[in-house]
Design a protein around this nucleic acid. Sequence first.
DNA 1: CGATTGGTCTACAACGTTGTAGAGCAACGT
DNA 2: ACGTTGCTCTACAACGTTGTAGACCAATCG
Lengths: 345, 345
Amino acid sequence: MGPTMHDVARVAGVSIKTVSNVINDYPHVRPGTRDRVIAAIEQLDYRPNLSARGLRSGRTGVIGLAVPSLRENYFAELADSVIRAAEARGLGVIVEQTGGQREKELLAVSTSRPRFLDGLLFSPVSLGQEDAEALAIDGPLVLLGERIFDGPTDHVTMHNLSSAQAAVQHLLEIGRRRIALVGADLNGIDETSSASLRLKGYLRALDEAGIEMDPALVRTTEMSRWNRAGGAAAAHLLVREGVEFDAVFALSDTLGLGVLRALGEEGLRVPDDVAVIGFDNIDESGYSVPSMTTVDPGREEIAVLAVDRLIERIAEKSADRRPPETFKPEFTIVRRESTGFPDPQ
Amino acid sequence: MGPTMHDVARVAGVSIKTVSNVINDYPHVRPGTRDRVIAAIEQLDYRPNLSARGLRSGRTGVIGLAVPSLRENYFAELADSVIRAAEARGLGVIVEQTGGQREKELLAVSTSRPRFLDGLLFSPVSLGQEDAEALAIDGPLVLLGERIFDGPTDHVTMHNLSSAQAAVQHLLEIGRRRIALVGADLNGIDETSSASLRLKGYLRALDEAGIEMDPALVRTTEMSRWNRAGGAAAAHLLVREGVEFDAVFALSDTLGLGVLRALGEEGLRVPDDVAVIGFDNIDESGYSVPSMTTVDPGREEIAVLAVDRLIERIAEKSADRRPPETFKPEFTIVRRESTGFPDPQ
DNA sequence: CGATTGGTCTACAACGTTGTAGAGCAACGT
DNA sequence: ACGTTGCTCTACAACGTTGTAGACCAATCG
């Protein structure tokens, strides 16, 4: 066990509280005293015990980040952004993986927080509107992307509908008319899921272009969630069923990368035979063959907004609670080879 | 602030210590008493304050994981494995990103640990043998992969040399003779780095096959660390310099994926013109076009071994410290399309 | 039957920190 | 000269938990 404030105080010849004051930048400490304390701290290599501080002050300086899985690139990159944003503000991040399972997601919000985390950033996948009240309890909570609840919680999400619409418009602009959608979720009638909103954007874009929706072009991904295998399977099916299509809107980049691979296996050229656009702008999409056009939902900004919002909520006195808010950064379409735009350089 | 043990004790009609005993499975508690306490805990939705427990017992139940970046797929997948292994053992994981920078790596080992983490899993990149003593201090520490120190620390690493040798042998077996290596690190004469060991494996395989090494085939990746851009740049250079080669051994999968992309751009077919093998077996390698043969260094096992080893070290009394050990799980070569093996299915 | 054992439970102190209250002192204004 | 102010610092208590010591009682043993 290392040195404590008592040790530092003894060496510096001051009271233990003065050491505390120096550490916490309490203004009324004479420069000389401060120097002596700092010298003692360095001499002893003193570092504060966060458990004790947490016990006394109620803050641990640690927040939680609950995501489905770090093996999904989007969430790995989101975690990267969140951790860097948090670190810049002096917070540590405990990462929890829910696997996208409802049970684990509920656990993450309740038990996971055994009076330890100052707050939680949570990216739910399986929870729906009906679980809104499960989120009402407990401390500071900010929900990230994916779904939208009407619950009493802050959201940092994305322009799911309008960006999906823009993605399809991009395909229309380059002359495609038979646009398949991969990754639809037709079981849940959950109006607020990313899948539903992006589907709605797809439909709206088609509608505005005067194109009728063909159910054969809207593909789900069965068991497999939004991963490469699901995208590949959906693309194979499209081809093997003989469905005519000249473009694919994949609801996530990993789906899109699976689609790219399957189209290659089927002997179709991208973008000549089929154009492909994804969603998320994960790093990988810039390096696939061909590189993939995608929707950048503003991940970095989502992370920063979310951390800042959480910090505000943590600092808030329970008295002057502001009403929950929703934030949506701007999205952009990143044009790459899979829709006929050569990479820069 | 939620209910405390005092509240539970009052409701259950016992002393606070009895509540503690129930929670910690102290054996000598009558079933009836135990039931009343458990009922009270559930009624109040009591959850222990980990700060207080940490203060009193010296354990927080949280370990640290310091990796270069979660944007590198290998480390995202490693983090996934570590977090799942830790969760199964009741530990939380705080993830820190060093960016591979020496300064931040040193910080991660020292300051990062302000008497809070029970232990640290650390995957160093920039630290070398000369920093071994910097790692001597502080609490339980287990080093992961990448580099090997002779310091007083446990290692869970991989068969860098022999697996690299096996990778090159695989290329030799399919008839390749002009085998390029991408990702060499020729600046540092650090004999213990992954790059050096894998280079040595490459050389040994060539030597055993009676092939002389051609310096033009051994490529560094300049500024960029082992990422796709570096692999792509190296492959472009190889082609444009007119170097003759029929295979590439990329020292990481991301490098290899960059190589795949660049070869495609240069109009070379994989594996017909050039066979490619990577290293790491990240998920992505199974889904590239073509899918990429690679070395699986046993990532999942590395994570489990490391967490278990750290837990042992945490439990250890400082008296009976066992000497540091090194663990290396078995590696395997995963054969895929980039060396002429069709994917299963 | 008295002494011993062992199971069950409690009171108390301590972990290292920070908030509160206030002491001591110099500088200032009247 | 004296009260007031404001800066600097200290003593003390408290955060919620667990280890230690021991009280109490029933069962067991000689």
